[in-house]
Simulated assay, not measured.
Amino acid sequence: MVFPGDTNHHGTLFGGEALSFMDSAAFIAATRYCRRKVVTRHLDAMEFSRPIPQGSLVELVARVIKTGRSSMTVLVELFIEQMYSDQRELGCTGTFVLVAIGDDGQPTPVPNLNGDGPRLEG
């Protein structure tokens, strides 16, 4: 839910709050994918399609779309729903790159996206 404290002077979701919500969703998706500690490395692209008004419900959908040796690219979509309507539309999208880290704090391999075990090449 977009509460007044999450909004800017236009009464819409502040961009930094949307980024925070989306980074959290990317973190959860990447952690569930590799079951390791992860950190955000890079925000590749962010597109705000429409304003997200105060009082709206938001749904975040995040999925791993690409893997590297220790990195995962996560696409996050933020959907807007009106509180008392079944109307739903895409509010913004972002692509985040997260890296799995081992107990030593260094990057550690993640499984291939196709499920064949750890990816050892670049």
Rank of each mutant, 00 (worst) to 15 (best):
M1F: 15
F3C: 03
H9N: 12
H10A: 15
H10V: 08
T12A: 07
T12L: 04
T12P: 00
L13M: 14
L13P: 04
F14H: 15
F14G: 06
G15A: 15
G15I: 05
G16K: 02
G16Q: 02
E17Q: 10
E17R: 10
A18F: 00
S20P: 01
D23Y: 00
D23L: 01
A25F: 05
A26C: 06
F27A: 08
F27S: 05
I28M: 08
I28E: 13
I28S: 07
A30C: 02
C34T: 09
C34F: 05
R35H: 12
R35C: 13
R35N: 14
K37H: 15
V38L: 02
V38Q: 04
V39N: 02
V39D: 00
T40P: 02
T40I: 00
R41I: 09
H42S: 14
L43H: 06
A45G: 09
A45K: 11
E47D: 13
F48A: 09
F48Q: 05
S49G: 10
S49A: 14
S49R: 15
R50M: 15
R50A: 15
I52T: 14
P53E: 00
Q54T: 07
G55N: 07
S56A: 14
L57N: 11
L60H: 06
L60M: 09
L60R: 05
V61F: 04
A62I: 04
A62H: 02
V64G: 01
I65L: 00
K66D: 15
K66T: 10
G68M: 09
G68Q: 08
S70L: 09
T73D: 10
V74C: 03
V76L: 03
E77I: 01
L78H: 01
L78K: 09
F79T: 04
F79P: 00
S85Q: 11
D86L: 12
D86Q: 11
R88F: 00
E89Q: 14
E89H: 13
L90N: 11
G91I: 01
G91D: 01
G91P: 02
C92W: 07
G94K: 06
G94P: 06
F96E: 07
V97T: 12
V97K: 11
V99C: 08
V99Q: 13
I101S: 01
D103W: 05
G105H: 08
P107R: 13
P107W: 07
P107Y: 05
T108N: 02
P109H: 03
N112A: 14
N112K: 15
D116W: 11
D116I: 05
G117K: 12
G117M: 12
E121V: 08
G122D: 14
